[in-house]
Design a protein around this nucleic acid. Structure first.
Lengths: 222, 222
DNA sequence: ATTTTTCAATAGTATTACTATTATATTTGT
DNA sequence: ACAAATATAATAGTAATACTATTGAAAAAT
C-alpha cells in the first residue's frame, strides 16, 4: 500500500503544469470547481473559465491538456482527500466493526463543511464527484487512462475498505464489489434524492443514506 | 400503474417525428445504437450517422431534436422492453421470493440474446445503457426533463420491483433505494469488470453479479 | 390539374475544443 | 549590470461539432 498523501500531492501525469506552482494555477482549480458545479460539465468551457478569472483560455491549456483532464485531476484530488479522511477517522479504533462503520460514514455522507484545504472547496467538489465524475471514466479512453494510473487513488480507497471487510469476515467473497457498490450507490442516491426522488426513500435530515448503506454492509457480510 | 407496453410504444415527447413511421426512422434508431456502442456517445455525431446510413445529417434532425434526445429515446425504449420482460418473467410465480428473484435476474443479468424486436438490437442497447445512460440524466436539464416524464418508465420499473419487496417485507423502509441501488450497481459492476476490474470480484462465466445482488437483496430485507 | 403538404438535401452559422505564434516577463550566466 | 536563455501568458487563430435556415423535389389532398 502506498504512502498516505497528507498535502494532497497529485500525480504529474494528470497535469501539464502543476497548478499548485502558481497563483494562476490555484485560481484555475478553485474557480473551475465552482463553475463546473454552476454550469455542469458540458456547458463549462475553458473560455468561460478564462473570462471569469480574468485570464486567457490558452493560459489554462498550459496547466491542463483538456477539460477532461481537469476533471480527472479534480477526481484524483477528491479521492486523495477522502483517503486522508478515511485513514485518519479509522486510526486507533480497536473494534473491527466500528472501524468499518466509520469508513462507511466517510464514504457515504454528504460533505457539508469546507475544511479549507487551501484553495479547494470540498463541499462543492463533493457535488461535482456526485454529478460529473462518471463522465470521466465512461469514455472510450478508459482502458489506456486506467493503465496510466489515473484512477489509482480511487482503487486504493476501495482496497482499504475491502481490507476492513475481510478483517471482519475473511470468507466473504466480494469485498471490492460490495465497497464499490456502496460508494457509487451512495453518490447516486444523493443525486436521485434531489432530482429523481421517487427512486429513493430519503427523509429530510435523517441521513437515511448513511444508515441504509451501513445496515446493508453488515447484513451482507454476516 | 400504467398499461404494459407490448409493442414498445414511446411517448411522443421524446421525438420530433416518430422513427417507427418510416424506414429512414428505423434505420436511424438501429444504426445509432451500433454507432454509439462503437464510438461512444461523445464521438458519435449525427453527421457520421447520416454518412453511415446514406442519408443527410439534417434528415436525422427531423426525427430527433438532438443527440441527447436520441439517447433519451433509446433509454426509454430499453426500459419499456425491460418492463415487458419483467412482467412476463414474474407472472404466475406463486412464491413471493421466487418472484423477486426472477425480477432481480432480469435487472442484473447481461443481455446476450438479441430477441429481434424488429430493428432494435437489445444486446448492444444493453451495453449502451451500461456505458452511456448516466450521461442522459447527469445534466443541468434533469429537473425539467423529469417533469416532462422522460424517465417515467424507468421509475415505473423500480416501483414494480419495490412492490415485490414490500410484498415480502412490508416493514422494510427503503425498497426504492434498494432496487435502484441494485439496478445501477449491477450496471456499474459490469462496466468495472471490463475496465476497472480491481473494483469488482467478477469471476469468468459464474454470473457473480446476479448472485451477488440476489444475495444482497434477500439479506437486506430480512 | 393545381394547391398544399411532406420530406430531405444543401449550405450554411455559432460554438467549442484546442493550437500556433508572438509578446512579455523572469531567471540565469558572465 | 547586462545580455542570453527560459518561462509565461496573451493574441489570434483552426478544425470540428451541434444545430438551423432555406430551398427544391416528391407525395398527397382538393
Amino acid at each position: 500500500m502506498d504512502r498516505l498523501q497528507i498535502h494532497i500531492v497529485i500525480s504529474e501525469e494528470l497535469y501539464t503544469k502543476n497548478p499548485e506552482s502558481s497563483e494562476l494555477g490555484k485560481k484555475i482549480v478553485s474557480r473551475s470547481i465552482e463553475m463546473i458545479d454552476e454550469l455542469g460539465f458540458e456547458a463549462f468551457t475553458f473560455k468561460k473559465l478564462g473570462q471569469s478569472i480574468g485570464s486567457n483560455e490558452s493560459s489554462i491549456y498550459r496547466y491542463f491538456e483538456s477539460k477532461h483532464m481537469l476533471l480527472v485531476y479534480l477526481i484524483c484530488w477528491y479521492w486523495s482527500w477522502i483517503e486522508y479522511k478515511l485513514v485518519f477517522a479509522t486510526a486507533n479504533i480497536q473494534s473491527k466493526e466500528e472501524k468499518l462503520s466509520a469508513a462507511i460514514e466517510i464514504l457515504t455522507r454528504k460533505v457539508d463543511v469546507d475544511n479549507s484545504f487551501s484553495y479547494v472547496n470540498e463541499v462543492i467538489l463533493n457535488r461535482i464527484i456526485i454529478a460529473e465524475s462518471s463522465k470521466a471514466y465512461h469514455t472510450k479512453d478508459i482502458d489506456t487512462e486506467n493503465e496510466k494510473g489515473y484512477y489509482k487513488v480511487y482503487k486504493r480507497v476501495v482496497q482499504r475498505v475491502s481490507n476492513m471487510v475481510k478483517e471482519i469476515n475473511g470468507e466473504f467473497d466480494c469485498p471490492q464489489m460490495l465497497v464499490s457498490t456502496v460508494i457509487e450507490g451512495a453518490h447516486q442516491q444523493r443525486y436521485f434524492s434531489e432530482h429523481l426522488p421517487s427512486l429513493t426513500n430519503v427523509q429530510e435530515g435523517k441521513d437515511t443514506i448513511v444508515k441504509f448503506y451501513n445496515n446493508l454492509v453488515f447484513k451482507v457480510i454476516n
